[in-house]
Design a protein around this nucleic acid. Structure first.
Lengths: 248, 248
DNA sequence: ACAAAAGTGTTTAGTGTACACCCATGC
DNA sequence: GCATGGGTGTACACTAAACACTTTTGT
């Protein structure tokens, strides 16, 4: 999908102790970023992982992350690292939480700031980049063993997502730009692991006035074609200004 | 309220550049913690601040914070710093967000992890500690100028609190152990800056089954004495296990 | 007796839930 | 014509909001 920069020679920090970190020396010491990227693919919640081919976790799966440059804001670092490792760019990354258990990282103290984003998995082709031999989507319910404390980050992120999706209209980011109401319903069912009533779900969503009809229908389905909608973010802004609060 | 440890000599890091940080050298470089402590005092939302008497912000008010030791988990560091600077201990500190703008700190790159807690301000006497000349509560609506990006942290924290208090029963932490329904209502009114209907508020709260009556009444009030209640955290656990979700 | 806050009852509008039903389309 | 999902209607229980009302207690 996009080209991958590779301008960071793998130098080792002077005070690294046992296993070299391959941490370039223009980065902040002892502080890293990890990205938890959620995707939705055919109604299944996915998480983006990369396989390390250098460093203390060589050969293991991990969240795409790395180190922060001296002159780089945190979110910019998260975006750069994600692109370098997976080829994915232009996501709306938000901070999740900072993880800093003393022994979370081998041999050194490294605190990591986790960021998250939600995307329609179908739109993103992953390309392994610097220091990674592979990058792919995994089903959130069936993840491989992860490096360091990354499973803890994922668990925290999943709980956070389940909570967040009920209180803010972020779920829409998991869908393609144009979607049907059933896709939206299936999204909620996938994340919350519940079964919802179709007519009631429709009405609830429609009443919020956050869906703009595309005046377009599904194509190539073996049944009546559904109307396509977009999430109307301008309408959402207007409503929140007036005190509206999204509650699913 | 409690004694203050003072066992950290004010050494200066070798690579500090212009204004010395007084950062002891057994701490993580470039990473700090700041505590945003909310209190409620006579129906007013307060925030705990300290006045720096050393370092780049000498003479200015700040959130109580400092540096993390090599062998210290993040929350432990937050708790230790809070006690060292204000004498306050045993709070339930939770992570708020990490702030890392490149230029948030003068002359050096320092990323700070913000923690927050909610307490009944009346229960805590503040005692200035190491490196601080003063520690006191300020009205959240009338704060002095703050050091670095601490105003940004406070703004973020206030928004977070307003949101959180509607979705989780954390507001109770701002009250004394035994409280009346009117105190609880005034708390919500103070945080959300709204006026609520007394009868409806009562019923809403009572129906949640989260308040345990103390079988005790207010004393020394010039009117009918109200019943006192405690927040029943065991009941809350039981309810959440069954899928109950606190929504105010 | 009065003020001040505690606490109750009642009406009304609106919301959430369950489920029966009709509609459009591809095979 | 029938399966499949799209989409509507409706009855009922429950909740939220507004506000009039009674109760208790200190001064």
């Amino acid at each position: 999908m996009c080209t991958v920069a590779n301008n960071n020679p793998s130098t080792t920090r002077p005070h690294s102790r046992v296993e070299p970190l391959n941490e370039p020396d223009n980065v902040l010491p002892g502080l890293s970023i990890d990205n938890l990227i959620f995707g939705l693919d055919h109604g299944q919640l996915k998480i983006m992982l990369v396989k390390h081919n250098v460093g203390p976790g060589k050969g293991k799966w991990a969240l795409p992350g790395g180190f922060i440059k001296q002159n780089e804001n945190l979110r910019d670092a998260a975006a750069r690292l994600l692109e370098e490792l997976t080829g994915v760019r232009d996501l709306y990354l938000e901070q999740l939480k900072t993880f800093g258990r003393v022994d979370r990282f081998p041999n050194e103290r490294v605190v990591t700031i986790a960021y998250y984003a939600l995307v329609s998995a179908e739109n993103y082709t992953l390309v392994a980049g610097r220091n990674t031999s592979d990058a792919m989507w995994f089903d959130a319910k069936d993840l491989p063993e992860l490096i360091y404390d990354h499973s803890e980050i994922v668990d925290h992120g999943l709980n956070f997502l389940r909570h967040k999706v009920c209180h803010e209209p972020i779920g829409f980011n998991l869908l393609p730009e144009k979607f049907t109401l059933l896709q939206l319903q299936e999204l909620y069912e996938a994340i919350l692991d519940v079964k919802l009533d179709k007519p009631n779900f429709r009405r609830k969503m429609m009443k919020m006035n956050l869906l703009a009809p595309c005046n377009e229908k599904q194509k190539g389905v073996p049944h009546r074609a559904a109307n396509l909608y977009r999430f109307d973010s301008a309408a959402y802004e207007r409503l929140t200004d007036k005190g509206f609060s999204f509650e699913f």
